[in-house]
């Protein structure tokens, strides 16, 4: 549904994105991640036909965002970062304007505006001036104008920024409910959100794509080992040595180690559970086994490893 091929954008002498390629399948929700200034908003602005790329192509629903811009714009809903809206208009007339600009007829417009306000929970503020709304409500109006007209593709730049925890859950389930019928690309800095909402991720760092795919695949790719955290009261040297001999253990690392004992992180081949062996080893050696638990991998760790790994990899050449 979205195909981006070697997209590059220069702002004067600054290269904001370089050779960016990725694709999003129809009905998928994809999280677009990256540290500040990575080029997320730049990419999204190009996809939304706000500005052309310096080179490369992007196609949405099979149409080129630059050459068939009008056709693409009929099929997308866009909510820019920090949601620019007309402060001097009231919510309902504003949404009516958007619906009309998107080409909806009078009765259809009335129906959709009412429905969208309902879905985004802004019905009760429909007569207020947009400029007087709180940040969270503005954000929802921004989302409402994007989903008006039922576009095939939604491009949402940080849609949950500035919302309170309850609103975040509501907006997330709203976005989740768009899956299947709509293709969504959303950028965010809240990584747990991505695991909840998105089917896959695209990670960009310093203008280049560094990873993409389903979250599970990325976890396997960047954390190829299963991890167990153990706390043992026994001399550390012996513990380290013995644990390394367990079959399947790839690495053992001390986390907080003192003479009397400590915490260790044991990594083993993925799919290989070494907790029983550790328990038996401790019993046999008469070590005090204080804690033994599996450590799951969060997207956060993957993200940090990828982004930090990039920096490490760059250093020798710099």
């Amino acid at each position: 549904m979205i195909e981006v091929k070697s997209l590059t954008k220069n702002y004067g002498t600054i290269t904001a994105i370089r050779d960016v390629s990725f694709s999003v399948a129809p009905g998928e929700i994809v999280g677009f991640l990256g540290p500040n200034g990575a080029g997320k908003s730049t990419t999204m602005r190009i996809l939304a036909c706000f500005m052309p790329a310096s080179s490369g192509t992007a196609r949405i629903a099979g149409r080129d965002v630059f050459r068939e811009s009008l056709e693409v714009r009929k099929r997308i809903g866009y909510c820019p970062e920090n949601v620019p809206l007309y402060s001097d208009l009231r919510v309902a007339p504003y949404l009516d304007f958007v619906a009309e600009v998107k080409g909806l007829g009078r009765t259809e417009r009335r129906r959709q505006v009412a429905e969208v306000m309902e879905r985004c929970l802004i019905t009760e503020v429909q007569h207020r001036l947009i400029g007087r709304l709180s940040k969270g409500y503005r954000q929802r109006v921004g989302l409402a104008q994007a989903i008006l007209g039922d576009p095939e593709v939604l491009i949402l730049d940080e849609p949950t920024i500035g919302l309170d925890p309850k609103q975040i859950t509501e907006i997330r389930s709203l976005i989740r409910s768009l899956a299947g019928r709509h293709t969504v690309i959303l950028s965010t800095h809240i990584l747990p959100e991505v695991s909840v909402v998105c089917d896959g991720v695209v990670i960009i760092n310093k203008g280049s794509i560094v990873a993409q795919g389903p979250i599970d695949t990325l976890v396997d790719q960047f954390f190829p080992t299963a991890r167990v955290e153990v706390e043992i009261a026994a001399p550390p040297a012996a513990v380290l040595e013995r644990m390394r001999t367990i079959a399947g253990v790839v690495a053992v690392q001390g986390l907080a180690v003192t003479d009397g004992g400590g915490k260790y992180l044991v990594e083993s081949a993925r799919g290989r559970d070494v907790r029983r062996e550790i328990f038996e080893l401790a019993a046999q050696q008469r070590w005090g086994l204080l804690e033994l638990k599996r450590v799951g991998t969060t997207l956060e760790e993957v993200f940090i490893r990828i982004v930090a790994g990039e920096q490490v990899a760059e250093e020798p050449s710099a």
Partner: peptide, 12 residues
């Protein structure tokens, strides 16, 4: 105010 970013991405 940045509203031009939305205006120019509508199908007009």
């Amino acid at each position: 105010s940045g509203t031009i970013e939305l205006l120019l991405t509508y199908p007009v």
